[in-house]
């Protein structure tokens, strides 16, 4: 049973900016929240390989193919860093994967949108990875040590993801009329879903208060979203693209860009599983996992056999 004294001591450590390590005492609820949030983050990295992986074989040049392969491989790596951070809390990897493939674990809704052209891959790098960097730069200071360190490692790699995307967006934006049209259409489709990546408004975010109190996250959803919008408006202007929001305007007083109402109905609908690609994504992940079963089993059998022959020899 958790005593008030334990909870107060724990809060005092958090407030003093100390990191919590796996074997330290922590409230059960803190442990649950890290597992929930961290594994959602990990699942998102893994499923995030699909929309872009879809285009590897059709990359416009060898250079772009190499870049995309490296980026998609990084996303797999990011998922693995995060899973290993979460496992320090005593939960098994296979349990997490089961919850994701066969249970009701969530992942970021952005990956339930289809990638219709190569411009979508470019815009994902610019906007989606750009938004992810804003989130993860803050999470690198999260109170749970292993989770913070995994995010730090991710951040070091993520800036290449965004930069390669923005470079391609800029190239398309100064290209032929058809290329311009293609990239503007991608921006139009990905703009609102990207803003949804930061989660519901603060007034409508049930987990936020607890996560902030324990410094699992350090900023509210709306703060991070604003930070992102302020930066992207400038970047869109620089390459002559239009963000599809007629209400976007600069507020001299606050120094921030105000934006229109996010289509939250769409957000909740996709969260509930009704996005264009929800079923397809889970189907692909299950297939990859199940098709790989024989490889996992064969490697285990090989390791057992080697162990046996080593024992015999000694």
């Amino acid at each position: 049973m958790e005593t008030q004294q334990q909870l107060d001591d724990f809060q005092a450590r958090i407030d003093a900016g100390e990191k919590i390590e796996p074997k330290d005492w922590m409230p059960e609820r803190y442990r649950e929240q890290i597992i929930r949030m961290g594994s959602q983050h990990a699942h998102s990295e893994i499923v995030g390989m699909l929309p872009e992986g879809n285009w590897i074989s059709r990359a416009p040049s060898l250079k772009r193919k190499l870049v995309l392969l490296a980026k998609v491989q990084d996303e797999a790596g990011h998922g693995l860093y995060l899973y290993s951070a979460i496992e320090t809390l005593g939960v098994r990897r296979s349990e997490l994967i089961d919850q994701y493939l066969y249970g009701n674990a969530k992942y970021s809704s952005i990956f339930n949108y289809p990638t219709l052209s190569y411009a979508d891959v470019c815009v994902i790098g610019w906007l989606v990875d750009g938004a992810a960097i804003v989130n993860q730069t803050k999470l690198a200071h999260s109170s749970y040590g292993p989770y913070a360190r995994a995010n730090l490692r991710i951040c070091k790699e993520e800036s290449f993801h965004k930069k390669q995307g923005y470079e391609m967006v800029a190239k398309l934006a100064e290209g032929t009329p058809a290329q311009r049209k293609m990239v503007q259409s991608a921006v139009d489709r990905f703009w609102w879903p990207t803003l949804m990546m930061f989660g519901p408004n603060d007034s409508n975010s049930p987990n936020s208060a607890e996560l902030l109190k324990w410094q699992v996250k350090l900023n509210t959803n709306d703060e991070l979203r604003q930070h992102f919008v302020d930066r992207v408006v400038m970047e869109a202007e620089a390459v002559g693209l239009t963000l599809p929001d007629p209400d976007l305007k600069f507020n001299e007083e606050t120094g921030h860009w105000e934006f229109g109402e996010i289509p939250w109905d769409e957000f909740w609908d996709v969260v509930k599983g009704n996005g264009v690609m929800n079923r397809e994504r889970i189907k692909s992940r299950r297939k990859a996992h199940e098709d790989g079963a024989w490889v996992r089993e064969a490697a285990q059998a090989y390791a057992r056999k080697k162990n046996l022959s080593r024992e015999k020899a000694s």
Binding site: A70, Q73, D74, L80, S84, E87, R149, E157, Y302, A303
Partner: peptide
């Protein structure tokens, strides 16, 4: 660096290179 799952030591070393030393 972190941790990972692998079937044996050799496999662990290869996975470690791919997961933690891509750069």
């Amino acid at each position: 660096a972190g941790s990972l799952h692998a079937s044996d030591a050799e496999n662990a070393l290869q996975n470690a290179r791919d997961v933690y030393a891509r750069r």
